[in-house]
């Protein structure tokens, strides 16, 4: 329902563009008849509602349309872009978890000591550095100064090691920042658990602080953290768009910005709708997950 409304908005806003795609494609030298012929071919002379129905019908049946510029079917262009973006987001999520959980738990458990405060400060700084800035800094230090890893471009999955190597820096840039954000929630959740009665009971019956936290605490920490993590997934997808441009990876984000520049409307429409759909679906899934993980919430309502 919301998704349908979203598709209408995307389409209408992009269809009322000032520049006519046919004119942009053919350049300023184009004759009026050539422009008319191309407009005809692209189906842009039909009424707007008809174009919308064609577009949505195509998406539902799996035909995303043909790029105005390259003449390639968008599905295949998007497919090869997702081969880069998908693994990038996955790796980013992994890096984020590896950062968030230890950082959050550590700064909560040691919250009254210098080391815990230091971890919190580090965490705050991690949130303040945008992922694309971290990416550029990584390029400068690891790529340009140390020559350890590739700083841009993508060789394709036919060479798995090479492909993974070019995804390492982008994934770190993406994951560390998201991890820092999630880490704050982990910290809050662990602090909540640490001050809970059941943990005190667990300690009273003789468990060490560490064992009590692992056996009784972490499962309760998982509820809020999982939901935040789900929502951060949407953030990762958006972040990937930016990071791909930093590292010149041929993914969805690069395709999106190229299409904006070329006025390749239909590609922009497809990608914007795809990302919006991902955000909506993830939010919905998180909502459901939240209720099923924590029955107390269902009861409160």
């Amino acid at each position: 329902m919301t998704l349908a409304a979203a598709s209408v908005i995307v389409f209408v806003v992009l269809a009322i563009l000032p520049g006519k795609p046919a004119e942009v494609i053919l350049g300023t030298q184009a004759t009026p008849s050539a422009v008319r012929a191309l407009t005809d071919k692209l189906g842009l002379d039909k009424p707007i509602w008809r174009q919308y129905v064609d577009w949505v019908g195509g998406i539902v049946s799996g035909h995303l349309g043909t790029s105005y510029i390259s003449g390639q079917p968008i599905a295949s262009e998007l497919g090869s872009a997702l081969e880069v973006t998908g693994p990038l987001v996955g790796l980013g999520l992994l890096v984020g978890l590896v950062v968030a959980v230890p950082l959050g738990v550590f700064s909560a458990v040691r919250s009254r000591r210098a080391s815990g405060v230091a971890a919190s400060v580090l965490n705050q700084i991690g949130i303040a550095v945008p992922s694309f800035v971290l990416g550029i800094l990584l390029i400068v230090v690891v790529g340009v100064e140390l020559h350890l890893l590739p700083t841009g471009g993508f060789t394709g999955w036919s060479d798995p090691t090479g492909a993974l190597r070019s995804l390492v820096l982008p994934a770190v840039a993406l994951g560390v920042v998201e991890g820092a954000i999630v880490g704050r929630y982990v910290r809050t959740a662990v602090l909540d658990v640490l001050s809970s009665d059941y943990l005190r009971t667990a300690r009273a019956k003789g468990l060490t602080p560490g064992r009590a936290l692992v056996r009784h605490g972490l499962r309760n920490v998982a509820v809020p953290v999982l939901t935040v993590l789900g929502l951060e997934l949407a953030g990762l997808v958006v972040g990937a768009v930016i990071i791909e441009n930093v590292f010149t990876l041929p993914g969805m984000g690069t395709l999106l910005l190229q299409s904006v520049e070329n006025r390749d409307l239909i590609v922009v429409e497809d990608i914007v709708l795809l990302v919006a759909a991902v955000v909506l679906v993830v939010n919905f899934a998180v909502d459901i997950l939240y209720h099923s993980l924590d029955p107390r919430i269902a009861r409160e309502r």
Binding site: T2, I16, V272, A276
Partner: peptide, 23 residues
């Protein structure tokens, strides 16, 4: 609330992309 949810599905980046395509 539904309207807010709908707008929420468009992160600033996407809105900027659409606006930049137009203007």
């Amino acid at each position: 609330l539904r309207l807010a949810d709908l707008v929420y599905a468009f992160p600033a980046l996407l809105v900027a992309v659409v606006l930049a395509t137009d203007f």
